[in-house]
Amino acid sequence: MSDNVFMAGYGGQGILLIGNLLACAAILENKNATYFPAYGPEKRGGAATCTVIVSEEEIGSPVIGRPASALLFNQLAIDKYFERIAKGGLCVYNSSLVDQVPRDRSDVEMIRIPANDLAAEAGNARLVNMIMLGAYAGRTGVVSLESLKSGLDSILPERNKRFIPANMQALDRGAAFAVNA
């Protein structure tokens, strides 16, 4: 299965980390994948975006104008990027930080997920990114949750490896939410 997904939110929400994780999981499944971050001079607090493409074929462009899927983490991101989602696409958005979806789009499947609230329930506010990624993977099946979990070890920096079990639970929680949504 192939997909291209665009992710956007604040720097610090772990967006680049889950972009990495998704591409890494796809490669673990012997698919092709590219991860391309947008980056700026600032290290913290700016906007963070990245594009991940997963495919069985050779991948050309690592960037895409109209992504098939989008993971949008806050109001700013949905305001800016919602219109770009391709017809027939999927929008997973963090309703904890999105008050208003710009407009109704019948051509886009919406997954509204209160990721901050679910992360808080899970006991760690920083797991928002894993909740979102779990929801996306659970709904699309572009990679398996197992592959994402195996990818954690190579993607997380050494100092955060103690959080691997919590990250795994957050992936499951996000997936369960999306499947039941």
Partner: peptide, 9 residues
């Protein structure tokens, strides 16, 4: 910068 910053297999 695209090739340098991107990751793939």
């Amino acid at each position: 910068a695209m090739l340098g910053q991107m990751k793939e297999a």
